[in-house]
Amino acid sequence: MDKETLLNHELVPKHEILSEKDAKKILEKYGITKKELPKIKTNDPVIKAIDAEEGDVIEITRDSPTAGKTKYYRVVIPA
């Protein structure tokens, strides 16, 4: 599947790479290090499509049946 189709697929929520600064903010907000974040592997199709690298923090914006929209964060780890 090509990049565009993949990222625009209705079952694929929005994935964004957070800037170093924003990532730090998130970690500070929850009082954690990257180790405590949920993970996503470098070989994940979305990660490849958005050109994220190991150590990047990804912000995922999903539709939620209870909250409308919800944010989720994952750190990219080697496959």
């Binding site: 949920p38 919800t70 989720y72």
Partner: peptide, 18 residues
């Protein structure tokens, strides 16, 4: 947040709507 015993975050907002 929902966390495991080793402080791993499982969910950032409990049930997404807290």
């Amino acid at each position: 947040t929902v966390r495991s015993a080793s402080n791993q975050i499982i969910q950032f907002n409990y049930g997404e709507d807290k």
